[in-house]
Design a protein around this nucleic acid. Structure first.
Lengths: 267, 267
DNA sequence: CGTACCGTTGAGGTGAGTCAAAGTAAGTGG
DNA sequence: CCACTTACTTTGACTCACCTCAACGGTACG
């Protein structure tokens, strides 16, 4: 029965990936930033399974611009970004690329297609040099089949990740660009923000305006205007991709307080 | 270890749900329309587990307007709509209700919150009388822990369902209303369409204009205008919630052919 | 026979898209 | 080190799809 479900063992073991993938050395996921680590740490793997995990896992470096996988590719396993930034996008109804998700260190990618046993619906392209590890489908299936705890932790992580993504990329899609952009800044600050000497928060945005715009379902010009407006109000200072936020509370109050003056409309 | 993961057994067994829930009679999911059926059918459950499934599953009828669960409620289990139509919505940043998903016969609801072990982020309200069955978290966990095949089939179904939903509710959110509405019609036809005597396709829309608009992130007036336009072009005839589509191909060609004249823009 | 809500239509306003152009930064090669 | 190219960003002017507001007809219901 298990064999019947696994659509194609041969194509799922990673052997058909392009060559630059290498077997991961000591991929016990004790590596910092591997998103699977939290799902594995507390699971009492038997030695044989640890070996399988280590032997089957592949790692690879991607240059800026390289595609990690493409729309339409079979989902051969689970990807985990260990460092760098990649962008997931698809071709919309007008054949324009639409970005759906930015992924970075620790993020798991490709899980939906993997578990749906369907081809990828997005393309993952490295925006910077990326170090990615790949867990073949057979390995994931073996571990989820053998260790219910692993399975539960994995699906919990995936469900939680999805929950936090949904806020910006689904729930806020119809709000004004200004709101979506501030929300985006908050997400970037949470992930990439550092507090500098003056007590200000600084963020280095890992993506360019065009891609920000695409993520927000907007145009680069509109993003530029939102930026100009925030600068005029003194809520954020932009220098290329470097953002300084003098007062986080003041900035985020804009989106948090919208509810107070809201429409309270019923569906 | 399993105990530590299960955050709260007491609140998860369904006992704390409001009283109208009753133990499901013979819930072996041989019932037509139960969305879990396809995940259960081929799994060799032991008798004890079949008994647990049957004994723990609850069923309940909801009147139009009743809430099946609410935003903020703990996710106590998995819901499955057996008949009727319900709407999932949340309060947006302006405290207005925003519909995210229409569910009907066979649909599984609440899975993300359940597996994330987080509260529901949406409210599910019955739009018609709804017959709903409820699988307590303890049951689901027991079955996924015991039967890897069940686990895999369940997650496959959930991943696939999500994939098809994403098309309209994520990927198409930024297309013109006309496109989103036609896409919505196609989904409705697929699910509720019948071919009448004249060979025309008829669909009875289960929701009102305001809710269609909310699903499409638009205003009821804009939906009305989209409807008027389609009628003027002879692509569809509307009579309240009854839609007649004389030529499906002609209607859907509008969205399918957009790609041909697209912008081909890169992110 | 009101009252209430849904659906449609019109008039008018506006946020964001489009188009075009200028400014800026990052290479590249001589 | 400086021209030159190329790509990214910003700005302004214009346009338009959709929203807002308001009015009106239809239907359900007490």
């Amino acid at each position: 029965m298990a064999q019947k479900i696994m659509s194609d063992q041969a194509s799922a073991n990673g052997d058909e990936l392009e060559r630059p993938w290498r077997v991961g050395p000591t991929i016990t996921c004790a590596h910092i930033g591997c998103g699977l680590q939290s799902c594995i740490r507390d699971v009492p793997f038997r030695t044989a399974d640890t070996t399988i995990l280590e032997r089957s896992t592949l790692v690879r470096n991607f240059e800026r611009g390289e595609k990690i996988f493409s729309e339409g590719d079979a989902a051969a396993g689970l990807y985990c970004v260990r460092s760098g930034v990649a962008l997931l996008s698809y071709k919309d109804a007008f054949r324009a690329d639409k970005a759906v998700r930015m992924v970075g260190s620790g993020d798991l990618v490709g899980s939906r297609s993997l578990f749906a046993e369907e081809p990828h619906v997005t393309t993952a392209e490295a925006l910077t040099g990326c170090h990615v590890c790949f867990f073949p489908k057979t390995t994931i299936v073996r571990l989820t089949d053998t260790y219910p705890l692993f399975s539960r932790l994995l699906f919990r992580k995936l469900a939680r990740d999805r929950g936090s993504r949904n806020v910006l990329f689904i729930r806020e899609q119809h709000l004004p660009i200004r709101f979506r952009f501030i929300h985006f800044l908050r997400m970037m600050e949470k992930r990439y923000g550092v507090t500098n000497g003056n007590g200000n928060v600084c963020v280095k945005l890992p993506i360019m305006r065009r891609q920000i715009a695409s993520l927000l379902s907007a145009r680069p010009e509109s993003v530029a205007r939102a930026i100009t407006e925030l600068e005029r109000e003194g809520l954020a200072i932009f220098d290329g991709r470097d953002v300084t936020i003098p007062d986080s509370n003041a900035l985020y109050r804009i989106i948090d307080e919208a509810a107070a003056v809201g429409t309270h409309e019923k569906v």
